[in-house]
Design a protein around this nucleic acid. Structure first.
Lengths: 171, 171
DNA sequence: TCCGTTAAGTCAGTTTTATTGACATAATAA
DNA sequence: TTATTATGTCAATAAAACTGACTTAACGGA
């Protein structure tokens, strides 16, 4: 399985170069990818953190605060600042959980949905253009490689238990 | 070329889902990808910015400050803090340009090279594992899609004028 | 019912990483 | 000579995270 790295024939220069290109592709793509939404966020006086919260609440309606934290991997205090703003300004609703009333289930308001669409629009367009140019086969390869870089935990979210495996719907 | 978006047949649900998965793959992969180096950076009291500077100087020995700025897309003042530290602590050398003596050409010292290898090692391993799992064909697809997301400017760096198109070597 | 644990939130202080704006120096190039 | 460029610096500020300590309310098992 991993014998390649132990071959006598040596892990050639091209392989090293290939890997470095991979590193850089990831850097550049992510940089540009976030940049297209940043412009729009400024108009609302929001930052990337707000975008991520809006995005993942959109993807997982009814998600709990702790599940959101485990996606974002930031502290409760960091989330609090951002989430508090979004709730106060009417982009996100909090409902008390029915089974467990300690939980605050998060959903986007209509206003929040509208902002989410606006924010993700350019990112979708960027990816859509890249997918279209590259073709279906390349897209399959892209997904394979990207999935391979994720930990088991994250990889499961791309399985068959819903978009990210955190969705709750119920409330 | 772009007629797809204007089709009457409507841009189906699956397409939307596919794009959203792309967005998330990029988010998770980048998050994990940076995390593996962050651990090590802490030991040196450095942050991601230091890593990026070390990385791109390593890739482009003799790069000028302004070219480095145009890769990183941060302000001169932000770079200054990080670069100054790296120079003072002996990871990066500055030489005055020969043709243009206003320029400061940046190269890694041996100490800097060592740190670079150490830092990038885990990232390379992560990508290598993903490449190996996914197979050569998938890797080609990955590269196609990622390149498609870059602006023309960045895309050229992956052409045939050296690794990133900024390398200078001379000094 | 009592009690330890969990989910969520808050207060206070700090750190990292970036920003804008203004300005300085030296070298290049028209 | 003079405008421009490459680099660097001072000062103030902002964004987004952090640590640590603590509170409130609800759950759940003994």
């Amino acid at each position: 399985m991993a014998d390649i790295s132990t071959r006598k024939v040596n892990p050639l220069f091209l392989r090293e170069e290939e890997l470095r290109q991979g590193i850089e592709l990831l850097f550049y793509a992510y940089r540009d990818f976030t940049a297209v939404a940043d412009q729009m966020l400024e108009q609302y006086n929001f930052g990337r953190a707000h975008h991520r919260v809006i995005y993942f609440v959109s993807r997982n309606p009814g998600i709990t605060v702790s599940d959101l934290l485990s996606i974002l991997k930031i502290t409760k205090q960091s989330l609090s600042r951002v989430l508090g703003q979004l709730v106060r300004e009417g982009f996100i609703d909090q409902r008390t959980g029915l089974q467990d009333r300690r939980q605050r289930l998060l959903t986007l308001t209509e206003k929040g949905e509208a902002l989410e669409r606006e924010l993700t629009e350019k990112q979708r367009a960027l990816i859509a253009a890249a997918y279209r140019e590259a073709g279906a086969e390349a897209v399959e390869g892209f997904r394979k490689v990207m999935l391979g870089m994720l930990g088991e935990e994250d990889r499961q979210r791309f399985g068959d238990d819903g978009p990210t495996g955190f969705r709750q719907r119920a409330g």
